[in-house]
């Protein structure tokens, strides 16, 4: 059990693990047809994320995406119509215009994915922090024995 945990856990900090998992989940929730997915994928590769956590997060994100897909359009629409002028000025900027965020579904997908990943991060980070301390304590106790 300990060796399996070590295999999955590796050496990274709980922050990195939680962030990687959250980013992976975000990647899973965002539709692969959306240009945002590609941007996020490049960011995940460029930044020093924990790949195994990303993959696990991605799979869990894919599972949750089925349940969350119904919220995309209403959330995206409410965001876009909340401040039309702001979004119209922002979404025509270079590069951003390619992300198709003026479509409620794409915008909603991104917002839901961001919220989902933040929630996951908030949930996972303290858990991992607690687990790390617990494992370290047990490890130290075993070393002492």
């Amino acid at each position: 059990m300990f060796s399996l945990f070590k295999f999955i856990y590796g050496n990274p900090s709980p922050t990195r693990l939680a962030a990687s998992f959250a980013l992976g989940a975000m990647l899973g929730v965002i539709s692969t047809q959306s240009p945002v997915w590609l941007v996020l994928f490049i960011l995940i590769i460029v930044f020093r994320t924990h790949i195994i956590s990303v993959i696990i997060g991605y799979l869990s994100g894919k599972l949750f995406a089925v349940m969350l897909s119904g919220f995309y359009v209403p959330i995206g629409k409410s965001i876009l119509i909340s401040n039309k002028t702001f979004w119209q000025n922002l979404l025509i900027k270079p590069f951003i215009c390619y992300l198709n965020l003026n479509k409620a579904e794409v915008m909603g997908n991104l917002i839901v994915a961001v919220i989902f990943s933040i929630i996951l991060f908030i949930l996972i980070f303290p858990t991992l922090f607690f687990l790390k301390n617990l494992v370290l304590q047990k490890y130290k106790q075993r070393q002492l024995l």
């Binding site: 995309y72 359009v73 995206g76 629409k77 876009l80 119509i81 039309k84 979004w87 119209q88 979404l91 025509i92 215009c97 003026n102 479509k103 409620a104 579904e105 909603g108």
Partner: peptide, 8 residues
């Protein structure tokens, strides 16, 4: 599908 904000 859904709403689409018309960009200027």
């Amino acid at each position: 599908r859904g709403y689409e904000l018309k960009l200027p």
